[in-house]
């Protein structure tokens, strides 16, 4: 039995050495639960990606501890290109706020995928129709306006930037994930939250109110919603998602992955599903994404320091 086992093992090793990458399914670790924002972006991406990679791409949701469990799993995976890591800006934040020991520099960039702008969203039970009304009210009663957020992550940093730019004081209540925040804001249990264009349907139905979008220019999907810039607040914020591979992944493998990724991002079907989610496709190659990550890392460190969460 044992001899047989080793025989099989040897054969499979010999086979692996000869075949070109990729010769078996590739695992893409999404460090959040299925059905979350990140998962909803990487599932359609996976479909397009496997078409150009010529191998099945299996999404593995490894949730827990603000994305850090999945990050740790991805970091420990063999650097052979068969394990990839779907990442967004949380990795910088959890590193600087001391939640995790995993940094983006433990990986090598493959490509960036998409960027989702934040929209400040208010409960219909509040009386504000616009940002100035919100600011006036918040100044009148500092620390009384409640914001639902995943503390220490992007949905916390976005309102914190608004808070700082407008010179107001908000009160944060912990609601993990967009789904929970939406249930709470619909019932009026929180006043504000970080939303995005996926919630447009509820805004149209009068169940929610978009106050302002954190982009440079107005979005064509919601032309009535002003940008923060127009209102005199310097707030531009979006969450960028991309693909990383473990640190020692060989260059040839990275190049194959990069090529398939860039082609996948050009797919019409992928663009359509991103549009449905209020997200822009952002195709940066290895070099471009690497430079982007370096820049964002610096920004996030400064940000963590500004809002008083820097632990490193």
């Amino acid at each position: 039995m044992k001899a047989l086992a080793w025989g099989i093992a040897f054969l499979s090793l010999a086979g692996a050495a000869q075949a070109a990458f990729p010769e078996r399914p590739v695992k893409l670790i999404v460090p959040w639960a299925a059905g979350g924002d990140t998962d909803n972006i990487f599932r359609p991406f996976g479909q397009a990606f496997q078409k150009h990679l010529g191998q099945t791409v299996v999404i593995a949701n490894i949730g827990g501890a603000s994305g850090t469990v999945g990050a740790r799993e991805a970091k420990a995976a063999p650097a052979d290109g068969y394990t990839l890591f779907a990442v967004h800006d949380f990795i910088h934040l959890t590193y600087y706020t001391g939640v995790a020991d995993t940094s983006y520099s433990d990986f090598r960039p493959v490509c960036s995928v998409a960027s989702t702008p934040s929209v400040l969203t208010a409960s219909p039970k509040t009386k504000w129709q616009s940002i100035p009304e919100l600011i006036a009210d918040a100044k009148a009663r500092p620390g009384a306006v409640t914001v639902g957020a995943t503390l220490g992550s992007t949905s916390h940093f976005f309102p914190a930037i608004v808070e700082k730019a407008a010179g107001i004081k908000l009160k944060y209540v912990s609601y993990d994930g967009l789904a929970q925040r939406m249930n709470a804001i619909l019932g009026g249990h929180i006043d504000l939250t970080d939303g995005n264009l996926t919630q447009k349907g509820k805004v149209d139905a009068g169940q929610l109110r978009f106050l302002a979008i954190a982009t440079e220019k107005r979005n064509a999907e919601i032309p009535n919603v002003p940008t923060f810039r127009e209102l005199g607040l310097d707030v531009v914020y979006s969450v960028t998602r991309g693909l990383l591979a473990p640190k020692n992944t060989p260059d040839a493998v990275l190049a194959t992955l990069e090529g398939a990724c860039i082609k996948a991002l050009a797919e019409e079907s992928f663009a359509r599903s991103m549009k449905a989610q209020g997200t822009e496709v952002l195709p940066l190659d290895r070099k471009g994404y690497g430079a982007f990550l370096d820049r964002v890392d610096g920004e996030n460190k400064a940000l963590a320091q500004e809002v008083g969460l820097l632990r490193r």
Partner: peptide, 17 residues
């Protein structure tokens, strides 16, 4: 699991199988 259910059960670190 691998072919129909999109779950990759562990492959061996020693054996690659």
């Amino acid at each position: 699991f691998e072919h129909y259910l999109s779950v990759l059960l562990p492959r061996g670190a020693w054996t690659g199988f």
